[in-house]
Design a protein around this nucleic acid. Structure first.
Lengths: 134, 134
DNA sequence: TTCACCTGTTAGCTGAGTCTTACAGGTGAA
DNA sequence: TTCACCTGTAAGACTCAGCTAACAGGTGAA
């Protein structure tokens, strides 16, 4: 279930004129960072910042690859996403928060007896970036 | 067709924790401003700011009514909304921009020959607020 | 007249998001 | 060795959304 935090993160990740254009550019297929920066017409550092947000929200994924000529290229690709935004979506998100809170409470309760193995969620992978070689 | 500007406005209007709670509160039925401020736990001026954004985006509507006892009450009600957010939505919005630009160009072209009657769009009504009496 | 509500607006502070400039390192080719 | 690409990050400036405090005015009831 999508918590309100996740919902907000997703909305924010899409809700920026530049990011819309980035998404549109990626819809045509994967592009490496420098090329993408050129196409969209922004500086690389700025693009990195936006990509970071989009990556955290699960909109895109970055892959560092070594090209045939040995140059490192970071390819960005669009991940499929779909969100139907309705009052029900909003209500569901807030409900999900409450449930998450409950879980947190239970965790706190169990803290002493520490039952391992539950960080499961979508919280893993500080870097989705994977190295690939040809 | 939804332009990117309108899409962004809508995303921004929903994309705030407080506004999510406002929407949720309004899902239960219309509420007047002061009461809503109390329920959500924010100051009235702050609430006004958020409501303004939401109203501009077409999420809610405000109606100033005179209660039976003669007191003026501004009731806020939720307007139905639905947006499916996909890469196609994004592409469509950017395409809509181009078309809007074209229209603007045509208008500019016709500027000399000034053909009246076309401000039609959704730009009217600086205040959706309507006065109602019992 | 005072109280307890309601409406609406303005002036100002703050912090997060945005953006630019500048740095540091790697590769292959001329 | 220099050039033209590529990768990444750090440090500032700036803008605006967000928020608070304070104002001004209306009503009915005690």
């Amino acid at each position: 279930m999508l918590t309100s935090e996740e919902l907000l993160q997703l909305l924010a990740a899409v809700g920026h004129p530049l990011r819309l254009r980035i998404l549109a550019e990626l819809a045509g297929g994967r592009v490496h960072v420098s090329e993408l920066a050129r196409r969209v017409g922004v500086s690389r550092p700025l693009l990195y910042m936006h990509l970071e947000r989009m990556e955290k929200a699960g909109l895109v994924r970055g892959r560092l690859e070594l090209a045939a000529d040995g140059k490192a290229m970071k390819y960005i690709e669009l991940l499929p996403f779909e969100l139907t935004l309705t009052i029900d979506t909003v209500l569901a998100a807030l409900r999900a928060d409450d449930e998450a809170d409950d879980e947190a409470d239970h965790k706190a309760d169990d803290a002493a007896g520490d039952t391992a193995g539950d960080a499961a969620g979508g919280e893993e992978g500080p870097h989705d970036v994977q190295e690939t070689q040809q």
